[in-house]
């Protein structure tokens, strides 16, 4: 794992939040180790360092258990991106995000970006069932990702979340549709007091993934890494010392994000 040589102060912080058993650890494990294996319930939080170009991105994989709830805000302090994870086959896991986890992000950076990730897509979506283990599959993966984004755009009108029955009926067991997630994304922006226009669009920030098959996982992490780059650069310029970001600075720095990827 992190070798002594490359251990530096992380440049930016990314946090995985979500109810237990939605697959946060598995997602990260799929991305870092290219493997899917049985995990045990995470204790507290686990810290990882990912080299992304010249930068060190720290990723906090948190425990979803209520037992560790109180630590959430500590893990989120100064985060540049928060990945809110739910299980597409479990409506409650999406509801928990709003009820239990959203308030934890109060300690995140002012310009923190939020991604909504529906994991376990392989359970409900035939496209996600294809195993994407090897590198040569990465092209497919990109295709799938784009394809998916298109579908999302087509049905972009957010539906009220109180309707788990509003599933498109394609596959069995699907309880959360992308529309539900996007509606929640809208509410998150409102909660944060952010303008929908000046923020990243919902289609871009809502993902469906499968840690089991690898579907869309790289896409998710890489898109987010690219999106936090501006935040890294700001940190580099202004605040080398502390892993926490000065909120004043951030407010001034404005959230002009390049429309990459």
């Amino acid at each position: 794992m992190p070798e002594v040589s490359k251990m530096k102060k992380p440049d930016v912080k990314l946090v995985l939040l979500g109810d237990m058993n939605v697959g946060k650890t598995s997602l990260l494990h799929r991305y870092t180790e290219r493997k899917f294996k049985d995990t045990v319930s995470t204790v507290g939080g686990a810290f990882f360092l990912k080299q992304w170009g010249p930068y060190n991105i720290s990723i906090w994989d948190t425990a979803g258990r209520e037992q560790f709830h109180g630590l959430g805000s500590m893990y989120c302090r100064g985060a540049a991106a928060v990945i809110l994870t739910y299980d597409v086959s479990n409506w409650q896991s999406l509801a928990e995000l709003e009820e239990r986890f959203l308030s934890l992000t109060d300690t995140a950076n002012q310009d923190c970006i939020y991604a909504l990730v529906g994991n376990k897509a392989d359970l409900t979506d035939p496209r996600a069932q294809l195993s994407q283990d090897s590198d040569e599959a990465s092209k497919d993966r990109m295709d799938c990702g784009e394809e998916r984004t298109e579908t999302q755009v087509l049905s972009a009108c957010p539906t009220p979340p109180a309707s788990p029955a509003s599933l498109s009926g394609i596959t069995l067991g699907k309880q959360v549709t992308p529309e539900d997630a996007m509606a929640l994304y809208g509410r998150i922006l409102r909660y944060k007091g952010l303008e929908e226009k000046s923020s990243l669009p919902a289609e871009k920030m809502c993902f469906e993934t499968s840690a089991k098959t690898g579907y869309n996982v790289d896409n998710l992490f890489e898109a987010l890494f690219d999106l936090v780059l501006p935040s890294i650069l700001r940190n580099k310029n202004e605040n080398q010392q502390s892993p926490t970001v000065d909120l004043e600075e951030c407010r001034g720095a404005k959230r002009g994000r390049p429309g990459c990827c």
Binding site: T39, T42, G44, A46, F47, F48
Partner: peptide
């Protein structure tokens, strides 16, 4: 025991109360 029981994911650095 805690370490033994949570060792399945050994890659990260864990911080827990």
């Amino acid at each position: 025991n805690l370490i033994g029981a949570s060792s399945a994911f050994q890659a990260g650095e864990i911080w827990t109360p």
